[in-house]
Simulated assay, not measured.
Amino acid sequence: MALEIENIINKHESALKKYRGLYVFADLLATFLVLYALFVLLNMRDIFLMIDTFEPYTGAKYSIPGSEIVFETLGLIILAFTFSLILTAFRYYRAKKKDAISLIEEKYPVLRERMRTAYDNRDMDNIIVRDLIGGVIIDSKPVKSSVFLNRKKLAKDLLVTLFAVTLLAYVAHTGYQAPVGPLDLEEVIETIPFPGSDSNLISVEENGGTSGDPQNNEGLFGEPAVIIIEGKEVDLKIPPGGGEGFTSQEEGEPKNNTFIQSDVYNPEAVASQAYYENLPEGYRSVIQSYFEQLAEE
């Protein structure tokens, strides 16, 4: 009896794994077709022209049995499949998985708690366990593995797949593509004046002129700029020869321009005796008379 209940649970677990694999495949296919249809519609093949590594391969054709495929199309297929694989794996990694016993007990209330208890105690041999396992085996005969199949989920994936295939067929038949693509977005990004970009700088040419939009130079050569400091308008126009230009009194260091007046010259002042002490003994009178003659002249 223990072996029989194990076979019943293993059969339902095997069917449950197959259905889960079918869910993964249906989700992966639907996600892949939707992403690929969006990539084709939004001209995402131009992204290979924006990458220097792939630019030499654009336009190349590869032979596939029965047809040829362009490099851009092959690249979009690989890109869409990679993204769809990541999204599907992330979605099922976070999903809560129920075992076959839990699903059977949800679908068949008569087996609730009984099937799990019988399976957990299948190795015990007593009259109570044998009676429980026997009753569970009888009540589980109407159980079919098809009850585990989530038909609503498969129907949703099927509708999404049909929508993506229809969109791809319409684009292939009419050649319709969105008016905006990666190349257009690249041009828009290049025109955005990001801080620190070269478009915000004014280059000074050798002849003293400036390059760029002349309208942006009106602040340099037009009316003098005015700023407001403590409620007062201050003209920033620098006069010729103005030196270092405008400096705020709060930021600059104060300069002490006061001068100390020297004493009035005293005509009666006499020379210091140190002058005579430094002269040689034998030449003192000669040098003194020489300078006195110079003073008289």
Rank of each mutant, 00 (worst) to 15 (best):
T88K: 15
G59E: 05
Y36S: 09
I86A: 13
L35H: 06
I47C: 05
D120G: 06
F81H: 08
K96F: 09
V129D: 02
I69R: 07
T117Y: 11
E105W: 07
A164Y: 14
L49V: 00
L87P: 02
N121H: 07
S102E: 15
D52I: 02
L33H: 15
K97E: 13
D139H: 06
L132I: 05
Y108P: 01
T82Q: 06
I69G: 01
L79E: 01
S63L: 01
L85F: 10
I69K: 02
K156I: 07
S67Y: 00
K144W: 04
E105V: 07
P65G: 02
L159P: 02
L159E: 09
A80P: 03
L111M: 09
V143R: 08
L74T: 04
I127S: 14
S146D: 15
I69P: 01
S67F: 04
L42T: 15
L42Y: 13
F48V: 04
R151L: 07
D120M: 14
K153R: 13
R45S: 13
G134F: 06
E105K: 09
N43Q: 00
T166M: 15
S145V: 04
Y93H: 11
V40I: 14
V160D: 14
R112W: 03
L79A: 14
K144I: 11
K141M: 05
N150E: 13
F83R: 14
V110Y: 05
S84D: 06
D120V: 10
I86L: 11
L167A: 15
E106T: 11
D125W: 06
N43T: 00
L162C: 08
R45A: 10
L103C: 08
A60C: 04
R151G: 04
F83I: 12
L167N: 12
R130E: 08
V129N: 08
P142K: 07
L149M: 08
Y36P: 04
L149T: 10
T58V: 15
E68H: 05
K107V: 04
V160I: 14
D125G: 09
N121M: 06
T82A: 14
M115K: 05
R45P: 00
M50K: 11
A37N: 12
Y57V: 03
I138W: 06
R116M: 07
